[in-house]
Simulated assay, not measured.
Amino acid sequence: MPQMAPLLWLYLYIFFLLSFIIFLMINYFIKPFETIDSNIISKSSTHFFNWKL
């Protein structure tokens, strides 16, 4: 039935919006791994590269 096509697009649009909102909420509440400060790496890594013959 051709008159059902606008409802199909409406349902697809609502499904997309709900899934996008859920995706954003998951990304907001799940924190990424903590990044290590580059200054700490550069200070500690100099000890490993000081080789004495």
Rank of each mutant, 00 (worst) to 15 (best):
I26N: 10
L17R: 03
E34H: 09
L18D: 03
Y13N: 11
Q3S: 12
I21T: 10
F20I: 03
S19L: 12
Y28H: 08
I30F: 12
L53T: 12
I40K: 08
S38W: 09
L24D: 01
P6V: 02
L8R: 00
L12R: 01
Y11D: 01
F20M: 07
I14P: 00
F20C: 09
I21Q: 04
F49G: 15
F16E: 01
F49H: 14
I30T: 12
S42P: 00
W9T: 06
I26Y: 09
D37N: 13
P6D: 03
F23L: 14
I22C: 01
K52N: 11
L7Q: 04
L10P: 00
L12A: 08
Y13A: 15
I36Q: 02
T35A: 12
P2K: 04
S45K: 13
L12V: 04
L18Y: 09
Y28C: 03
W9L: 10
S38Q: 12
I21Y: 11
Q3K: 08
F15R: 01
M25V: 10
F29C: 01
I36M: 03
L10Y: 03
S44M: 11
Y13H: 08
P2Y: 03
M4F: 15
F48I: 11
Y28N: 05
H47A: 13
F49W: 13
F20T: 14
L18T: 08
L53I: 15
L24N: 05
L12Y: 00
T35E: 15
F20N: 05
M25D: 04
S19I: 08
L24T: 03
F49M: 09
K31M: 04
L17P: 01
E34I: 05
I30A: 06
L18A: 13
T46M: 10
I21H: 03
I41R: 05
F48V: 08
S45W: 13
F23M: 06
L8Y: 00
L53P: 14
I40W: 06
K31Y: 10
S45E: 15
Q3I: 07
L10V: 02
K43L: 11
L17M: 08
F33I: 05
T46I: 15
P6F: 06
I26E: 05
F49N: 15
S38F: 14
I26D: 05
F33W: 04
M4W: 10
I36L: 06
Y28L: 14
H47C: 02
S19E: 09
I40H: 03
A5I: 12
M25C: 09
A5Q: 04
H47Q: 09
E34M: 07
I30N: 07
Y11P: 00
F29D: 00
K31G: 01
S42L: 13
Q3Y: 13
P32Q: 00
N39M: 11
W9F: 12
H47T: 05
F23R: 08
F15Q: 09
S42M: 06
P32T: 01
L7I: 06
K52M: 04
Y28M: 10
S19P: 00
F49E: 14
K52S: 09
A5F: 06
L18N: 05
S19F: 07
Y28P: 00
F23D: 09
E34W: 06
S44C: 09
K43F: 13
Y28G: 05
I41V: 15
S44N: 13
N50T: 12
F15M: 10
L7P: 00
F16G: 03
T35V: 12
F16R: 00
L8Q: 02
S45T: 14
